[in-house]
């Protein structure tokens, strides 16, 4: 079980961002949302570690450490 890496870890951040935006070129909003969903599932499987994925979910959902209290 490992902590989520939130320090810089991408070798070429601008290059990554460029690829990410380009990958959406030509898609309408619905297709872009589906692509993002598939991307999250792929990357989550690559990470594997439930602890890291849990932390990522919490941060993405709201403030770090607050996610568990925000469950409806």
């Amino acid at each position: 079980m490992a902590d989520l890496i939130t320090e810089p870890n991408l070798p070429d951040p601008d290059g990554f961002y460029d690829r990410l935006i380009r990958a959406h070129h030509g898609l309408d909003d619905a297709a872009s949302r589906r692509m993002n969903a598939r991307l999250v599932l792929l990357l989550a499987n690559h990470i594997g570690d439930p602890e890291a994925i849990g932390q990522a979910l919490a941060i993405a959902r709201g403030e770090p450490g607050e996610a568990s209290t925000r469950t409806p």
């Binding site: 939130t6 320090e7 810089p8 991408l10 951040p13 601008d14």
Partner: peptide, 11 residues
């Protein structure tokens, strides 16, 4: 605002 990695993405 909170996480260093994301600062690298802001351009």
């Amino acid at each position: 605002a909170r996480l260093p990695f994301a600062r690298q993405l802001v351009n």
